[in-house]
Every structure is written in C-alpha cells, then in structure tokens.
Design a protein around this nucleic acid. Sequence first.
DNA 1: ATCGTTATTGCGACAAATTTGCATTAACTT
DNA 2: AAGTTAATGCAAATTTGTCGCAATAACGAT
Lengths: 140, 140
Amino acid sequence: MSRRNTASKSAVLHLIQQSDCALSQEMVADRLRTDINRSTIYRILNRFVEDGLVHRVVGEDGRQYFARCSGCTPEVHRHDHPHFHCTACERVECLSEPVNISIPAGYRAQFLNVTVSGLCGDCSSDHEKAPSAGGRKGLS
Amino acid sequence: MSRRNTASKSAVLHLIQQSDCALSQEMVADRLRTDINRSTIYRILNRFVEDGLVHRVVGEDGRQYFARCSGCTPEVHRHDHPHFHCTACERVECLSEPVNISIPAGYRAQFLNVTVSGLCGDCSSDHEKAPSAGGRKGLS
DNA sequence: ATCGTTATTGCGACAAATTTGCATTAACTT
DNA sequence: AAGTTAATGCAAATTTGTCGCAATAACGAT
C-alpha cells in the first residue's frame, strides 16, 4: 500500500509546511485555492500523521489541528513541545521549549498534548487598546 | 444572577468530588442513580467550571472531562497539573506534579491543558498478559 | 504508449459531542 | 403566599470527524 502523489496531497502538504502555525481542516480548506472535499482533506491529514510528516494537536476547543514537524528530522520525531492556542484569533502555534512530564511507574506514555490557551501577542495588545471592543470572543 | 441549589446540582457535584478521576458527561450520567437530562448535565458542569468548583480537561479524544480541584483551596486554584488519559479504559486522571510552561513575552496565558495518553498501570499490565486480546481499542 | 491494479477522491450518510431555543418547573426573596 | 427568574427537560440544531461506495486517476508492468 504505497502512497501516490496527487495535486490535493501536494497542495495540503505545501500549505502546512509553509504555515507557521497548526491548521484545522477548516483552515486548510479556506486557504486552498481549489476546492478539496472535506473528507479528503481529513484523509490526507491523517495519512500525513501516519507517515510522520505532520503532527496532530488537540486544541483547547477539542478540535484537531495539524502542524509540520518543526525541528524534526526524518529520523528523529519529537512532538513534546507545547502549543499556544489563542482564544481570540484561534491561531495554534508550536512553542519551542520541550516539556518533560513524568508519569507513574507502570504507565505507558504514547502521546503528549500540551496546550496553553489565552491571548497571543497580537490579540493581547489589541485587547489592551480596545478593552470593550466587540470583535473578539467572550473574553472579559 | 445567583445560583440556586437543586438536587441535580448536588448529585453531580458530589459525584465529581468523590471521583478520583475526571468524568465526561456520559460518565456522570452513567453513575447517577437518577436520570438527569443530558443538556442539564452539561449546563451544570459548565456552571461548576465558571464558578471554579471543577476544572475542565480536554482529552486526547477531544472530549471534555471534568475533575474536582484536588489540592485547590477555595482561595488558590492551580490547574497546572498534567492528566493521564488511558486509551484503553478511558480513565482521565490528574497527576500531581505541576508543570511550568514558559510562553513568549506579550502573551497572556489563561488555561493550561496537559494530557499524556497511553496505557495506565492496570491496562498496561493487562496488555502484557494478553497482547492479542480483543477487548481493548486499537492498540498495537 | 497502453493496460491493469488499487490508492485516492467526492459525495452522501452517519455518528458522536455539545449547544441552543423554548416552554415548564421550582428556588429563593420579599 | 406571591413574584421573580434560575434551572430543567425536550427537541432540534451545530459542529467535527468518519465511513461506505462508486468513480477517478497514479504508477508500475507490459
């Protein structure tokens, strides 16, 4: 079951590799010039995860976001970095500093998902300037 | 808009405070003697989160789990501990050791969600004993 | 260059998790 | 005891992600 190259696959991969933050299926669809079916995008993304090209992040909202493996070589994959999920602009970005969680003896760790949510730099300063503006979502 | 005491609310709160792991809406419903409507359970849980009685954990599956604030006093709330989400038995438990994530300057952290998933102690040893058993979900 | 195999796609349907509108009920205040 | 309105139940809607299936197209073999 070897992989085949298709325009859709290349387009999605390119998008994710260019992006400086993790993308949801919806974000991918929005940024593509051509229309690709929703299920197809999901399937492409899941295949990328299987193949180790991108990693999956579960956002604070429970949705899946996909990001390139920055700092990963084809040989070494480390996805133990935190993510910052901005509750205003919805950007999910990878932070660089790895985290180390110790788990109880006898447990087997498989995946790690670390997400800090709040306001990113841009939205944080927007917020200072316009504390009572209506544009943003549910932040006091 | 002050809160009112109802039997449903007490029942759910009691359940969560007794539980040693985080519970989803479904788990709460299953463990209640009386039937409480699904939306009502969600609403009760969300109110508890608002009021700082319990904290919300987003599992590896993107679902919401709710846990008592263990180690929290009414004055000091710290939810910077990791969670372990067992992919076999689906238990979500709070680990004690707090984590510290540093975020870029100008960012504002609001929530932290740290989840390690894999096999908990019980399921890990089950797994050793019966590597090819059929009962568990999608683990190689 | 053509053919055959089968990975990939699109589409519709489905499933699960969570939220919302609305009428009804019931806590708590006065 | 009466009034106000938070809380509830129910149904419907939303959202996110998956699945089956038929049609398409990539790519190795001829």
